[in-house]
Amino acid sequence: MINLNWFPVWQRNFLVWKKLAMPSLLGNLADPMLYMLGLGYGLGGLLHQVNGVPYLHFLAAGTLCYSVMNSATFETLYSAFSRMHVQKTWEAILNTPLTLRDVLVGEWLWAASKSLLSGVAIILVIWGLGLYTDFSLTLALVPVIVLTGLCFSGLGLAVNAVSPNYDFFLYYFTLCITPQVLLGGVFYPPTALPAWLAVAADWLPLTHAVNLARPLLLGRWPDAVALHALVLLAYGLAGFLFGLRQTRRRLLR
């Protein structure tokens, strides 16, 4: 990480992305927009207020975190797997002076960068629809997005490293991603959960991302910022290190 050897790997992915930037950005926006409009107006019409704000305002932070998670996850599962396993791009790079660590740091930071783009696109929508209370606080969402992106990119690389094929990713979505979407406070406040389930939800990284993002949109500084940030970083770093170890066993043995 100290050296910049990872940068050509990041740059390679960026140059590929640049070729398809428009459809990619539109895709980044369409999904969360549908969630916000569909659920925000549909469900919001029934709920009126959640935690003292209109449901659409409440939902915005959840959708933001959910989209960042999705973007980082798809990039490190399907896209990285194609580069590693199908196209053998990583093997081509390993024949140069770059090492596997350089490749994985590049992939990690690239996926986090891509999820940052998704997140920023949603912030633009949030600004456009006026779904915030204090504009200056919404700027603090950027580091939250970066942390969330690093967290789920790292976890994604861990899953990528042990996947025999694309089908395997379905287990990760079913067992890890979906529970976070449904229990991590995206759609409703975690206080609505029974105590035992709320305790379980506290262990999910997405919960911590939402705990940072939601207050910022509702006009106040979040509690326990350091704790939430540390949990996100710890998950991301652990995922990255495990992914590096397993990918080394997979490609360089």
């Binding site: 050509p8 790997v9 740059q11 390679r12 140059l15 590929v16 070729k19 196209q87 053998k88 791009t89 093997e91 081509a92 790079i93 140069t96 002076p97 770059l98």
Partner: peptide
């Protein structure tokens, strides 16, 4: 293991970056 997302020229250029 050429890079299918790039042209012939880009393949050489990107590989040089490594």
């Amino acid at each position: 293991n050429l890079d299918p997302d790039f042209t012939v020229r880009e393949n050489l250029q990107i590989y040089g970056r490594y």
